[in-house]
Amino acid sequence: MLKVIRVEAKLYLREGVMAYFSLLFPTILLLVLGAIPMLRSPDPTFGGLRFIDGYVGTLVVITLGYLGLQRVPTTVATYREKGVLRRLSTTPLHPAKVLTAQLVVNLAAAVTSVVLVVAAGKLVFDIDLPHHPVGFVLATLLGATSLFALGLVIAALAPTARAATGVAGVLFILIMFFGGAYLPRFLLPEAVNTVGRYLPPGVAALQNAWVGTAPEPLHLVIMALITAFAGTVAARTFRWE
């Protein structure tokens, strides 16, 4: 099993620019936005905070969204389409272990990316380290699992790898929008933000755990429920070939 994980990790890094980009993108975005003086000074428009303080939750959403809704469904659907999973099913290794390895590798990528953005935020812009570390770890993990599970549902139901990429792409844009990646959340209408709080990966929980007090338990519970529900659907409907 360790060997399978190691191989999947190697394959991930061999994807080249996109692999490194996905690890570094949130950090780069933070550095670019933070380079604009207006966005790193407290401003009443941003509720008296700095723009970058109000944007940290969204940075995590971008990472998790990319991995869960771009990489996971595309890779898994491609493995099925190309017969990689079918070939494995003739060996003593159950192909489910390859999917598990995929999730482990993507989770590791997510954690790396989040650690980098937290560190860059602290070192460069003196953004506080997460106020509620346990809550932040929980919010990140549950956010990741909820999106990974949704990615697997897409991979399970889509007839082809192309279809999986297409459907996942639409969902990715929605998640990015509600997560405040295109327009910062304090500029979005309240109705949109309300929806965003309950959508995976849970931007509100991430934001609150990082620079607020603590994530609302309800938000975490919802992410856990989404994970359980989507995970079950994916497991029930997944085709190996």
């Binding site: 191989v7 394959l11 061999r14 994807e15 493995y79 190309k82 017969g83 990689v84 079918r86 070939r87 003739t90």
Partner: peptide, 13 residues
């Protein structure tokens, strides 16, 4: 041991 018709490995393996 099985060799399948048209089954592939990951491209970059």
């Amino acid at each position: 041991g099985v060799q399948l018709q048209e089954s592939l490995l990951p491209e970059r393996l």
